[in-house]
Design a protein around this nucleic acid. Sequence first.
DNA 1: AGTTTAATTTGATCTGAAACAAGGTTCGCG
DNA 2: CGCGAACCTTGTTTCAGATCAAATTAAACT
Lengths: 255, 255
Amino acid sequence: MLARSTSRAIVTDRCASLGCSVCRGIDSAIKQELERLARVRRYAAGETVFGEEEEIPFVGNVVSGVLRMQKTIPDGRQQIVGLLVPSDMFGRVFSHRSQVSIEAATPVTLCCYSRRAFEALLGRFPALEHRMLLSILDELDAAQDWMMLLGCQTVMERVATFLLIVRGRSPGLSAPAPNRPTSYEIEVPINRRDMAAYLGTTAESISRSIQEMARQGVLRIADACHFEILNERQLIWLSGRGEAERRPERQLLIA
Amino acid sequence: MLARSTSRAIVTDRCASLGCSVCRGIDSAIKQELERLARVRRYAAGETVFGEEEEIPFVGNVVSGVLRMQKTIPDGRQQIVGLLVPSDMFGRVFSHRSQVSIEAATPVTLCCYSRRAFEALLGRFPALEHRMLLSILDELDAAQDWMMLLGCQTVMERVATFLLIVRGRSPGLSAPAPNRPTSYEIEVPINRRDMAAYLGTTAESISRSIQEMARQGVLRIADACHFEILNERQLIWLSGRGEAERRPERQLLIA
DNA sequence: AGTTTAATTTGATCTGAAACAAGGTTCGCG
DNA sequence: CGCGAACCTTGTTTCAGATCAAATTAAACT
């Protein structure tokens, strides 16, 4: 009990002040209301927070761990349409049923608000709803980037892009370093199977791409989840966003 | 001049009353403001409304024609991340630069509002901003569906899905028919190249899939853009959303 | 109508990545 | 410590779909 309420206090504090991106810079009246609503939930790796087509009883933000948002077709194929890391909001406001299932990819701690209550709050505080809008627009931009990745990039490019994203989120970059000795050690927080489902490929292909990068000296493999990036420029080039050194320029061949 | 202002009057009326989905059911004070802001623009097929990374001077909704939202990587590969058809909103509020380019896939007529002015309106009318939020959430759901399609479906499934979407939007379904003799004739409003860029494949593969469907008796090809759906059940099955007749059920093979 | 030009279809070949199949490694647990 | 269960890597085979090439059809221009 004690331990529980202690952690709750800590966690709800983080929800409102550190945690969810929509709450940043929001006035304290709203923060207080949010704290009042907040309830902590924990899930073990592999547990389902809610399934596809299910009711959405609550929304909230991730305190620790990683969630995957995924969709499944009847024959069993799965696609991860988003990963949720600490400070991300999860759930879906203003919709009865979820279009995705949300599952714990690692053990997670969530800070949850009743969906109804949260929606009511959005109605009462337009500034909060505005924050929400901005945050969803960012998600939409990210979704479009991912469509491009899935629609027309090679597996190697996808893996490189993913590693760069992980690198971008890893500590050392979050704090604006003065002299930029940004940590070149990254930790991939999910296993190969989930990476594959996220990148629209297979665990085998992921493995081959990473080993190939190591062979090229782009990175060093400490263990399956820990890498040291040795040649960031090359990694960026592999991701397909390079300057396009020698590209054919096909369209302007009209004499 | 006369013709121009005539069409403007007609069009702005449609913008506010028929046109954009966010305006539906919005009170008339807002509608009037919107009409005051509205300016019509026309583009020929192939013209760019605004390019990737460009300023976003205006937002608005499509009155007629089809726009494509697309992203390009340095080496020239392109992915269409969304098609915009009449009544869809285009543009991006609360962002200086666009993450996608918007181009006319056919001749289009747009009803445009200055982005700044529209944003100001959203600030003044929380109900309008709420509508906007709902509309963007729908877009996000659609984007997630598309990620699944690009990440783990075959070309045949993608084409079938696309045709079903076109069918769902074709007239006869928009009006809730009493006895449901829904039009089984569909018109694909874009060419094979754009279909390919949207579905993450090539024009050749699109062509092969459609010809194969015709061979199976799923549809009849009137011309490159007009089909008659002969067996909708089969088309749904081909799209991969079927009941999954005989699926292996791999995971539960633990004796 | 006749010529150019673009779009679509069809055919043949090639290839990146999936699928299948072993091994190897790591970790938790009795 | 040894056993089982995931997880990851590596090797081999197979195949869907890309690429290349050519023929056909349709649209646009004069």
